[in-house]
């Protein structure tokens, strides 16, 4: 029990440390207004292009994509902020289990990502006066939770790159744009060429977006278990890879002593 409490406490403190110093105005602009303006833009666009067809599914899919703000940029900041503040060496040198440490620090971003997506969905529903069936809410939240978890895993891998490169904004934006493109949130996935579709299968959020559209547009629940299982396994794989990267970085830092250097 004490271990679980420590895990939750660490998660909360890490998140608070990240945003605690910010002005609430900045938080609202970046974490609330920014996602809302993004979903509004894409919702207006798809509503115009597809003449309102399957709008609820597109709004749901775009709401899920908003989690990128947390799962990529937020997760990346776990490592980059430590590096910038000079505390990375202390974190890496501590005898605490790194897997538990970074999982706990990721948890707040998974929850924040879910909050951002729900906020976007509610906003889209209010603006476009659409409703979603009550019975779809629980499966939808489960799908989103798993998808965001998987996206955070990939975000942590990219975050690990900050141990080697200073070009993190480039990598994070590249990943965020790739997720927007490959997820198919704004068009039917079969529009993408086959090679891109095959690649998209190994990218988080693609299955989450597909399930969101199926749940909201067709009321089709039959693919939830297979696709969600695949998304969960993908997430686990990403976290395992990121921990291997961290281990390697830890090894390099001991051998070369260059963890805080470019």
């Amino acid at each position: 029990m004490e271990g679980i409490l420590r895990f939750a406490r660490h998660s909360f403190l890490s998140y608070k440390a990240l945003f605690g110093w910010l002005d609430p105005k900045v938080y609202i602009l970046v974490m609330v207004m920014n996602p809302i303006s993004q979903i509004l833009f894409f919702a207006v666009l798809v509503n115009y292009v597809y003449d309102g067809d399957d709008l609820v599914g597109y709004i749901g899919a775009n709401a899920l994509i908003l989690c990128v703000l947390n799962s990529v940029f937020g997760i990346m900041s776990i490592i980059t902020s430590d590096r910038r503040m000079g505390t990375l060496q202390l974190v890496m040198a501590t005898p605490v289990n790194k897997i538990g440490l970074f999982l706990s620090r990721s948890l707040a971003h998974v929850l924040n990502g879910l909050f951002t997506s729900v906020l976007g969905l509610i906003f889209g529903m209010v603006i476009f006066q659409i409703t979603i069936p009550l019975e779809a809410i629980l499966p939808l939240m489960t799908v989103w939770m798993v998808s965001i978890f998987a996206a955070c895993g990939l975000g942590l891998i990219i975050g690990c790159f900050s141990l080697w490169t200073p070009s993190m904004h480039l990598l994070a934006n590249l990943l965020a744009s790739s997720l927007l493109l490959l997820s198919g949130a704004n068009y039917p996935q079969n529009i993408m060429p086959d090679w891109l579709l095959s690649f998209a299968d190994f990218v988080p959020l693609t299955k989450g977006v597909e399930l969101t559209k199926q749940l909201l547009n067709e009321g089709n629940y039959s693919n939830v278990i297979p696709l969600l299982s695949a998304e969960f396994i993908l997430g686990i794989c990403y976290f395992v890879i990121s921990f291997l990267f961290l281990k390697y970085a830890e090894h390099l830092s001991r051998v070369k002593g260059t963890m805080d250097l470019d």
Binding site: D23, K25, V26, L29, V30, M33, N34, S37
Partner: peptide, 8 residues
């Protein structure tokens, strides 16, 4: 708030 506005 240049940075926040820039992102927004």
């Amino acid at each position: 708030q240049a940075e926040a506005l820039m992102n927004f």
